[in-house]
Structure formats: structure tokens, C-alpha cells
Amino acid sequence: MVKELKAQGVDMIIAVSHLGIDESSTDTSIKVAKGALGIDLIVDGHSHSTLVEGLNGENDTLIVSAGEYTKNLGVVELTFEGNKLVDKKAKLVTKEETANIQPDAAVEKVINDIKESQKAILSEEIGKTDVTLDGERDQVRAGETNLGNLITDAMIDVSGAEIAITNGGGIRASIQKGTITKGDVITVLPFGNYIVTKMLTGSQIKEALENGVSAYPETKGAFPHISGMTFAIDTTQPAGMRFIL
């Protein structure tokens, strides 16, 4: 992509990534900066790293990350001379520093108008549940839940596949007992992912499941929620060798 964009004569290249910079990632934004000469700025996520002034990575690439959960607003100031980028500076503005800032009325109106226009769609009732459907982070990333089972059962129903697997990290909320709305579904599954149906070998399925349970009993976003099959793991074995059919 760097080569393609350079050929188009762009003034700078920004990569928006979700790789992180800590040990939770095999491939990090630092590796990208080292391996892809020509990226001027990487706006990163995943590791929730708080880089107060950014990180000067390889090949003059500035890596920025604003922490987590809107605790900070990340700001990057770029200086150009003509079309040439000559300086990059990063800083963070904390939530506390913004406490006395008055909202921009025009921006607020846009937000409120969008929310109002979506109310009818999001409030549409699509089902009911007699129990709470568990999508809590600590639960879905370390074990199966009834919500994970419902989602994967629905994946089989739609696709006609024999088995279904989804990752616990993609389940973002619970659904309380009672009426289920479209808004509830979007809150649980906010990423707009598609169901992908593939022919896989048994060894490939085993490899995927091994990856998902590699951190157990610690939480991991890859923890597999499944339908159409059962499996067990031996936690006395090292990661990659835990699977029991």
C-alpha cells in the first residue's frame, strides 16, 4: 500500500492499525514501522498503550496511542512546507482537562439528529428472552456462555454449516431478560462482521481451537464459542497441545 500510495503522489501516509506494541501481539505496530518504509504516522490501538508524546519508531515513523476508554484525546500536529511534511508532534489531552469545555452546538445538533433518526430502527422488537444472555467480558473471554451459544447456533441456522465458531472478544455486551431489540443486537455485535463459510480440515479446526484456548484460564479475545460440536481441553498441557476431542 505504501508503494501504491507513493505512486499517487500523496503528501503523507497514515496507517490506522489495531496491533499494539506490547507482548500481547506477535505482530506489532513497531514491526510495521520497521518493515514498511514510508509510513509517516501510525495511529494504533489494541494494547491500550498511553503514549504521551508518541513513540518514534523505525524509519522516522511516529506511532501514537491514546490509552483506553476515552480517558484521553490524542492530538497530532503536522507541519508542512509546501507539500513536504517537515515535523510531527503528538500530545494527549486528558478527560479532566476537557471538563470545562462547552460543547459545540452545531456538532451536538448533528449527533442528536442522527440519534433521533435511528430511534425507530434500534427500538424495533425482534424477540424475547426468559433469561439474561451473558456477554460480560470476563465470561465470554474465558468460557462459553448462553449468548455465545445463541450466536453460533444462529450462524449455523443462517449458513447451513455443520459447525460454527466465533471469538468471545467480538461479543461486547449482555442482553437482559425480556424484550430483545435491534439496538440490543448492535450493542452486542457492533462491528458489522460477516459470516464466512469455509471447507476446513480437522487439523485446521483443531489449530483454531488451540489458539483460542491458549491463554485459559486467563481471558483472551480469541476464546472460541462454538456450535455443532463439543471439545474439551487439558489445562495441564502447554498451549498448542491442550485439545481433546
Rank of each mutant, 00 (worst) to 15 (best):
M1T: 13
A7S: 15
Q8A: 14
I13S: 08
G20V: 04
D22T: 04
E23Y: 09
S24N: 13
S24Q: 13
S25E: 07
D27K: 11
V32A: 13
A36W: 03
I42V: 10
D44N: 15
G45C: 10
H46F: 10
H48E: 12
L51P: 00
V52K: 15
G57S: 12
N59Q: 11
N59F: 08
D60S: 12
I63K: 05
E68F: 14
E77C: 09
L78T: 01
T79N: 09
T79K: 10
N83E: 11
K84R: 10
D87G: 08
A90N: 01
L92E: 04
K95G: 00
K95Y: 09
K95R: 14
T98E: 07
T98F: 05
N100M: 08
N100W: 00
D104M: 01
D104H: 02
A105F: 03
A106V: 11
V107A: 11
N112Q: 14
N112Y: 14
I114G: 00
E116C: 07
K119H: 02
I121A: 11
E125T: 13
E125I: 15
G127H: 15
G127T: 15
K128I: 13
E136L: 14
R137E: 01
Q139A: 14
R141A: 08
N146Y: 05
N146C: 05
N146P: 01
A154W: 06
A154T: 15
M155V: 14
D157Y: 07
T166E: 00
T166F: 01
N167W: 05
G169S: 04
G169A: 07
G170Q: 06
A173L: 07
S174D: 04
D184Q: 09
L189D: 08
P190L: 02
F191N: 10
G192I: 00
N193P: 00
V196Y: 10
T197I: 14
K198V: 14
K206W: 07
E207L: 08
E207V: 00
G212T: 03
K220M: 08
A222C: 04
S227E: 09
M229K: 06
M229Y: 06
T230C: 06
T235I: 15
T236C: 01
T236F: 11
Q237M: 12
P238H: 00
R242Q: 00
F243L: 15
